[in-house]
Design a binder for these strands. Structure first.
Lengths: 252, 252
DNA sequence: TATAAACTATCACGTTACGTAAGGGTCAAT
DNA sequence: ATTGACCCTTACGTAACGTGATAGTTTATA
C-alpha cells in the first residue's frame, strides 16, 4: 500500500507519515526500489496505536519509547488507553457542564463565582495518569532523553547511513560470536563490548553505563532482539548479555 | 488581582497570560505603577471565553478576531461553543467505540478491516463547523491576515508606543472634528481621512481600501467605537463614517 | 507512444503556543 | 535588613507538523 492510500485510510496527511518515518516512529515495512514507502497491515495497526496515544496527548517521543519498548503489551496498552479516554470524556462533560451553567447564568443575569467559571478545564488528573504510564515504560528502557537524542540524529540518516550502521553493528556482534570460546569475561570480548557501546554512542545516543546494562538484559529477555542476535550465532544473545553484565560491573 | 492569582483560578500558566497580553488577546484592565498586571472580573470572563474557544482548537488569532469583533455576541458564542463541544464529545465517543471494538477483536483473535480501525478519528466535521464560525466573523471585520500582521507588530509595542499611537490617532480625529463645517467631501477632510488610513497602516496593518470601508461603517454602528469617537466631538462618528464612505468611493 | 496528470521523493524553512531560563526589580514578613 | 515569594522584560528553544520548491515515477489518456 502506497503512502497516499495509507494516509487516507488513517485520516492523516502524507506529511505526517513522512514525519513519523523520519523520527523512526513508524517506518514502513518495505521500501520499493524506486524509493516509495510501502505500508503493510501491521504498519497500519501500529499507526492506529499511535493515533490512540496521540489522542491522549502523548508526545511522539513518548509514543516512540512506549511502542518500541520490549515490554510493550498491546492488550495492556489498549486497556490503559480506554481508561484515559474515559477520563478525557469526563473532563469534556465537565466543561460542557460549566458552559451550560454559564449560559444559564447570563440568561438570568446572575453572576458566577470566579472559580465556577473555570471548572472542568483542569487537565492534571489526565496528565498524571499519562505521565505515570509513560514513566513506567521509561524506567525499564532508557529515558526520553536518549530517545530524543536518538530521534534527532537518526532523522537525518539516509538509507545508506542506516545500512552502514546495521552492518557495523553486525560486524561487532559477529566478532563477539567468534570469541565465544574465550569466555564472556575475557579481555578480547570485553574490548568488543566497549566497541559495541561506542557504536551505540556514535550512531544513536550517549550510551551511559546504566543504559547499557538495561540493553544487555534486553538482548536476552526480549524475543525481538534475541532472535536477531541468535541469527548471527546460536547462543550469542545469552553470551552477549553475560559479557555486558561483566563489563558494567567492572566499569562502575 | 495580580497575575498569579488569576492564573491559578483559571488553571493556566503565568506565561500564558503574559503571552495573551503580548499578542493583545487579553490585556489586563489596569497596569499598576510598578508595572504589575492587574486582572479584573471582566478580564476573567474574557479568559473563560478564550478557554472555551481554545478547547475547540480555535487558533489564538481567530479567537482574537472573534472576541474583538464589533459583532461579537456573547450569548450567541456560548451557544455555538456548546454545539461544537457536543460534536467533540461525539467524536470522542466514537473513538472509544473503535477502541472497544479493537479490544474485543484482539481478545477473540479476529481482525478488523483497515477502515474500521480508524473510525472516529476524523476531525473534518468539527473543523468545518469551526471554520464556518470563524469565517462568519472575519468577513465583517477584516481577515486574519490583518490580525496576524497587527498582532506581530503590536507585540513589540511598549507602553510608550501605545500611548504615542493613541495620541496620534486622537490628534487626527480632533482635526477632522474641527473641519466638520467644511463637509465630509471637502478636500481638507478627505486629506485627513488619508492620514487616518496611513496611521492605521503605520501602526497596525496594511489598511486596504475594503478594510477601511469596513472600519468606516463600524465607527458608527458599533457603540464601543462610536462612544469613544463622539467623546472627541459630538456627531464626529457619523461624520467620519460618511467621510470614509466618500473616500472609498473616490479611491476605488 | 508521447504527454499530461497524479503520485512519489527529499530538502529546508515557516508556524503556533507557549516552555524555559537569565537577569533584575518589588513587596511583605521576619 | 534580609529573605523569600512574587513581579517584570528579553530572548532563545521546542513540538509536530505545514508549506513550498524541485525533481524523479507511474498511470491514464489522446
Amino acid at each position: 500500500m502506497k503512502i497516499k492510500e495509507a494516509a487516507e485510510i488513517a485520516g492523516v496527511s502524507v506529511r505526517t507519515l513522512h514525519h513519523y518515518d523520519n523520527i523512526g516512529l513508524l517506518k514502513p515495512e518495505t521500501k520499493a526500489e524506486n524509493g516509495y514507502r510501502l505500508y503493510s497491515k501491521t504498519d497500519l495497526q501500529r499507526l492506529q496505536q499511535i493515533l490512540f496515544f496521540r489522542e491522549l496527548d502523548f508526545s511522539l517521543a513518548d509514543i516512540s519509547s512506549i511502542l518500541n519498548s520490549p515490554h510493550f503489551d498491546r492488550t495492556d496498552a489498549l486497556k490503559k488507553q480506554h481508561a484515559l479516554l474515559q477520563l478525557k470524556k469526563k473532563r469534556l462533560e465537565s466543561i460542557i457542564n460549566t458552559l451550560e451553567k454559564t449560559i444559564a447564568a447570563t440568561e438570568e443575569n446572575k453572576d458566577m463565582s470566579a472559580k465556577e467559571n473555570f471548572e472542568g478545564f483542569d487537565m492534571s488528573k489526565i496528565d498524571e495518569h499519562r505521565k505515570k504510564y509513560a514513566d513506567e515504560v521509561k524506567k525499564r528502557y532508557g529515558s526520553t532523553a536518549e530517545f530524543r537524542e536518538s530521534s534527532k540524529r537518526t532523522e537525518s540518516y539516509t538509507d545508506r547511513d542506516w545500512k552502514d550502521v546495521t552492518e557495523k553493528g553486525n560486524a561487532i556482534l559477529a566478532e563477539i560470536g567468534s570469541l565465544m570460546d574465550e569466555g564472556a569475561g575475557s579481555e578480547a570480548v570485553q574490548m568488543e563490548v566497549e566497541k559495541w557501546r561506542a557504536h551505540i554512542t556514535e550512531s544513536f545516543y550517549t550510551c551511559k553505563i546504566e543504559i547499557l546494562a538495561g540493553l544487555g538484559e534486553m538482548y536476552s529477555s526480549d524475543d525481538r532482539f534475541k532472535k536477531n542476535i541468535d541469527k548471527i550465532k546460536t547462543g550469542l544473545a545469552a553470551f552477549l548479555t553475560e559479557a555486558i553484565r561483566i563489563y558494567c560491573k567492572e566499569n562502575n
